[in-house]
């Protein structure tokens, strides 16, 4: 069996007195999309931040590519999209892409090709030379996703990437995520859209600081004896 790309074991995280994560066990294998769902404030973003090494664990271990995080060099192989857009709004879309590309360590020679490619994926080619301050909310979200896609990272960590994106474009983006998976790259994605959860290889349900259930969508539906992941979510949360 090939080594897991993300391997979280008994992960715990406290902010002061508040225990956000108690016992998180989660793996992401090569060529797999793992969905992380859970109610607002459950700690999905916190899991991601610990995985990236932006927060240290209070207990347990977080390994990415078999290396204990935090590790600066590994960040070059991860494409991260935060829940907030995190863009420089006085710069144009292209300037944003180029800047983050440079920070990720993309070679100058490949830059233009990379920028043009990711812009096409998120359908921003026509607006690339506009300043971000003139973008709509959805456009900003797409640019933010494009930045995460830069440099063909082996691992994509996306925190609610499709918020504010219209259905047609959402489908286009998921098609691209599917292609990335088929290339053998891995994706960890959080979402509140349950149709998207159905598209993941496996879904982790985060509740009370624990991973309550972690399996393929169909297996989860069987386990909870419901028809959709949405019902799984509601049943697990205790909402009838």
């Amino acid at each position: 069996m090939s080594q897991a790309i993300i391997d979280l074991q008994h992960l715990a995280k406290k902010f002061g007195n508040q225990t956000v994560l108690k016992d998180i066990n989660l793996t992401v294998n090569p060529g797999e999309i793992v969905g992380l769902i859970g109610p607002s404030g459950a700690g999905k973003s916190t899991v991601i931040k610990v995985t990236l090494g932006m927060e240290v664990t209070s207990g347990g271990s977080a390994k990415v590519f078999g290396t204990v995080m935090p590790n600066r060099q590994l960040l070059g192989r991860i494409g991260y999209m935060a829940q907030t857009d995190a863009l420089y709004d006085t710069l144009t879309g292209r300037e944003n892409l180029k800047f983050y590309g440079l920070m990720k360590g993309i070679a100058k020679a490949d830059m233009t090709r990379e920028v043009d490619y990711v812009a096409k994926v998120v359908d921003l080619t026509a607006d690339l030379n506009k300043r971000v301050s003139g973008y709509s909310g959805g456009m900003m979200r797409r640019l933010s996703l494009a930045i995460a896609l830069l440099g063909k990272p082996d691992l994509l960590i996306l925190d609610e990437p499709t918020v504010g994106i219209d259905p047609a474009l959402r489908r286009q983006i998921w098609a691209e995520l599917g292609r990335i998976r088929d290339e053998g790259r891995s994706i960890l994605i959080t979402t509140h859209v349950m149709d998207e959860a159905e598209l993941c290889g496996r879904v982790a349900l985060l509740l009370d600081g624990k991973v309550m259930a972690f399996d393929a969508p169909a297996a989860l539906e069987q386990q909870y004896q419901v028809k959709t992941i949405e019902d799984v979510f509601l049943k697990a949360e205790g909402v009838e």
Partner: peptide, 13 residues
């Protein structure tokens, strides 16, 4: 705006 976080999520020193 979160750009610092994002910047620090790249291998930049």
């Amino acid at each position: 705006t979160g750009t610092l976080d994002r910047l620090l999520a790249t291998p930049v020193k």
